[in-house]
Design a protein around this nucleic acid. Structure first.
Lengths: 336, 336
DNA sequence: ATAAACATAGAAAAGGTTTACTATAGAATT
DNA sequence: AATTCTATAGTAAACCTTTTCTATGTTTAT
């Protein structure tokens, strides 16, 4: 029942444990016959080194924590997959954590990951306050911020150009003749929520269109909140519906669409919609949505690369990478 | 840059390291004034215990490995979420691994998880051979098999009643008058593939309907393989299309639908379809699919519970849990 | 007043590795 | 032939905890 240790291997092969370790790590000359003896003992005993002990000594756990709002959100899953594609070949494993957009839970998770001594953390924060993150970095744990940033934090950051993308897609709506535009957004305490809202407002402003407060909806960046917000809005504004909805995130677009259909409205005949971020299985959802297509997988890959760099080398230079997402025109916007 | 250790806390609080440890673990009487001194030192130094060292001594890592074909498949994500919902409150973290249906990669991942000394493994295997899994269990690592089973393996197993569910939904098609039925399935080396196919065949047989080989499609349980298989089938059988398709998994249903639409056919007017497993965002996909609705989240929860039990207690009794999935009637099957 | 029980604290071993240091034998250099 | 190198192997410390065992002072029982 108990696991075989390096001692037993050493005994069986008639060598010291140092020699076994050297055969395993291949970082010191060992004569060929001894090496073979050791390898034989290893395979006979079916020895598998204790990674915990290794980590204790080497101060490397070969684990990377990834902390996002919700691991079931395809956007974050894509990021995770991107990270994994880069780090798994180097023998790293990923620990997934969901904050559910709760800053307290985020802090708890970060502490836990720190206790586990993960080699790096990839984080899409829901916090406005970076003090614990700063601490982590100062104490030598690389933290790579993805999707969302915190101002004034000395950390590598990979985000999308939210302001301009939101500006552009709002402009697109305006050029199609829309003036009564509703926005379904996440919280403004999150950088993506804030920036997308700023871009949206700027586009209205530049076109001399007034922001209509009753069309400004907010919630957590998820399907349910968007569904409820849009449903209520439609019910309350039956007589004065917006002609278009800007959903500030993929899940919110889905929630909004479900609400629209449930209320017996058509897209885009009765109401147009655009999304920030791709839907799940977009090929099966009609009409094809006009949206900002994001770079989740690439962001993940970049985050993975930076994580590996930081783990192995220089830790005190930081960069911010801004990805420029595409505007993809679909059929969800009507000319008015 | 270096992390604070228990030694420094002890020094600062003027006590021994044993006392600090006792304050942390609260498993031995410590006088109130000493406890306060220690807690103060901890917070002043911002000490966070080294989980690696703890794990080495306590032989508990508080990590559970979860190994599935593809972490981006919503079905497996639901399982993972179910596991997480149960174990995270007990302080456990999840390490996610994707095998991409590659048994060699699975073995590598299992070895890695074993080296990491995870406390338990939740596994949806793509392997037919359970020898390494058996080894793991014998050496004291609980392995909970989910979704897919391996015959003759002494492990806790939680699966769906694939045979009967497949039988029932095929029967449903037959009762709707379908005789030319195509099946898009995963590999038969995987228990779910095999059992669903058996159920499918039995239903045909019981109704005196012949299996038509050219309508039997196979691939990995993913969107792409299903898409390609169905696309080719439609092209080749233009003159003799099946009237219905049984997709043996959620992703395959999606791939099949995309192919059907791309080939200019309608659902269910030109071709009916049923799915084993729920689609992503089913509310947005028209027509509403008739399908076998699975219990992924519940399976995950059960797996989490069993994992915790096994970690803490009895290890040598094993059970197989069989969940009975629902048949949900939608609008994707035409009466013929 | 003495013995027994108790509450609290520390010393030290243990957990399974890696690695700096030391040792030895034979090869190469002078 | 004496000296220096080199290749290879072992010893023991270190990584940071937890926990057993021991010690001490105090309380309770007799």
């Amino acid at each position: 029942m108990d696991k075989v240790t390096i001692k037993e291997v050493a005994k069986k092969a008639n060598v010291s444990i140092a020699t076994v370790s050297r055969v395993l790590n291949n970082n010191y000359p060992v004569s060929e016959d001894v090496r073979l003896k050791v390898l034989e003992a290893i395979s006979e005993l079916n020895y598998q080194p204790n990674g915990v002990a290794r980590s204790l000594k080497s101060k490397r756990t070969h684990m990377i924590g990834i902390v996002v709002a919700d691991i079931t959100n395809p956007y974050f899953m894509q990021i995770a997959k991107g990270v994994e594609s880069v780090v798994s070949s180097k023998g790293y494993n990923l620990i997934f954590c969901s904050t559910n957009e709760n800053p307290t839970k985020e802090l708890k998770l970060l502490r836990l990951l720190n206790e586990k001594r993960v080699d790096a953390i990839v984080l899409a924060t829901c916090d406005k306050d970076g003090s614990y993150i700063k601490q982590l970095i100062e104490h030598g744990t690389p933290v790579i911020m993805v999707d969302r940033k915190i101002h004034g934090l000395n950390a590598d950051t990979i985000v999308e150009d939210n302001f301009n993308a939101a500006y552009n897609i709002t402009n697109y709506l305006i050029n199609k003749g829309h003036k009564k535009i509703s926005v379904v957004n996440g919280l403004l305490s999150i950088s993506t929520g804030k920036e997308r809202f700023e871009g949206f407002k700027k586009a209205l402003e530049d076109n001399g269109i007034l922001l209509i407060e009753k069309y400004v909806l907010k919630g957590n960046f998820n399907r349910e909140d968007a569904y409820n917000a849009v449903k209520n809005m439609i019910k309350e504004q039956r007589e004065d519906l917006p002609t278009a909805i800007f959903a500030a995130n993929n899940l919110m677009a889905e929630g909004a669409m479900i609400a629209i259909y449930e209320q017996g409205l058509r897209i885009p005949e009765d109401i147009s919609i655009v999304s920030f971020g791709d839907l799940s299985v977009p090929q099966l959802i009609k009409p094809k949505l006009t949206l900002i297509s994001q770079n989740a997988y690439v962001i993940g890959q970049k985050a993975g690369e930076i994580a590996l760099e930081k783990i192995n080398g220089e830790k005190d230079n930081y960069r911010e990478y801004v990805m420029v997402p595409d505007l993809r025109v679909g059929e969800s916007v009507k000319q008015v």
